Amino acid sequence: MKRGIARTAVRRWGVALAVPVLLGSCATTDDAGAPEPVRTPTPTPTLALRIERTGGLIGPAVEPGRLPALSAYADGRVITPGPQIAVYPPPALPALQVQDAGMDTVARLAVDAVMAGVQPDTDFGDPGVADATTTVVTAVTGEGVHRVRVPALIEASVDDPELTPAQRAARTRLKNFIQRATRLPTDDHLPEPEPYRSVSLAALARPYTPADEAPVSPAPTRQWPGPALPGAVVATDGRITCTVVTGAEADRVRDAAAQASVLTPWRSGDKTWDVTFRPLLPDESACTDLAGF
């Protein structure tokens, strides 16, 4: 892509996202002419780019708890999985990190994603790899929302006989873009990532069953500190429910989860539950925003 075209695309993308912000900042005046304070709800951050994987061997019950590999927003924030502690069982709360990459960097990422093939007419083929994941890339530019779903992008070999040379080339371009985008946390020209603390948490509950490979000392059952489980939203397999906690309630749940592992049983009422904790990202507010619901 020529540099002038890229610059125009980024400028158009930025203007499109700036309009709602300007409209939301207007003030009114009272009869005396003095400006009145504007009390408008905080707008939901505009998603610019998301890279995620769905499906595979994890099963539909676990799908809603899966976190994207990258979520970038128009305000410059980039949220990615943080460093994971090498312990078993792992902590109940997944680690996320946030980085201020800057609005220009995020805008260019969205445009680059489209140029890398995130367009409805791109043919990535389907190698038919069993139990493979599907890579989903969503880019938002001034031209609208662009999304592709590529089966077995990670698992298929570069010379898979089920793919044409054009399909292989399209997959290589997209993979190269994803690798570059997900390396942002290590970019020396950007601020260091910091731990991301979500405003809200989703508690994904299913009836408790002991793990097949339980540790020598099983985790003690803990009293559930949030609203009564199991919740009301059911995933595709009918066994998992979802409850969103926010504000002070989310703080209590987060503090309790910080002392637990993924194998910790949670007691709510007269039943015991397995709970997966899924921090909600800035553009998410409800269980229906998660994959699998």
Rank of each mutant, 00 (worst) to 15 (best):
W13Q: 05
V15Q: 08
A18F: 04
A18E: 12
C26N: 05
T29G: 00
A34E: 10
P35S: 00
V38K: 06
V38P: 05
V38H: 08
R39N: 04
T40M: 12
T46Q: 14
L49M: 00
E52V: 13
E63H: 11
G65K: 11
L67P: 11
A74W: 03
D75K: 03
G76V: 05
T80E: 03
P83Y: 09
I85Q: 13
V87A: 11
P91G: 02
A95H: 10
A95M: 09
G102F: 06
G102W: 04
G102H: 03
A107K: 09
V114C: 04
M115G: 14
G117E: 09
V118P: 02
T122M: 00
D123A: 13
D131W: 08
T133C: 09
V136D: 06
T141S: 04
P151V: 11
A152D: 02
I154S: 15
L163A: 08
T164I: 10
Q167A: 02
N176Y: 00
Q179C: 08
A181M: 04
L184S: 01
R197A: 12
R206T: 14
Y208C: 04
A214F: 09
S217A: 14
A219P: 07
P220L: 14
G226K: 01
L229T: 09
G238Y: 01
T246W: 09
D251F: 02
D251H: 13
R252M: 15
A256F: 01
T264I: 08
T264A: 06
S268A: 00
S268P: 00
V275R: 00
D283Y: 05
F293P: 09
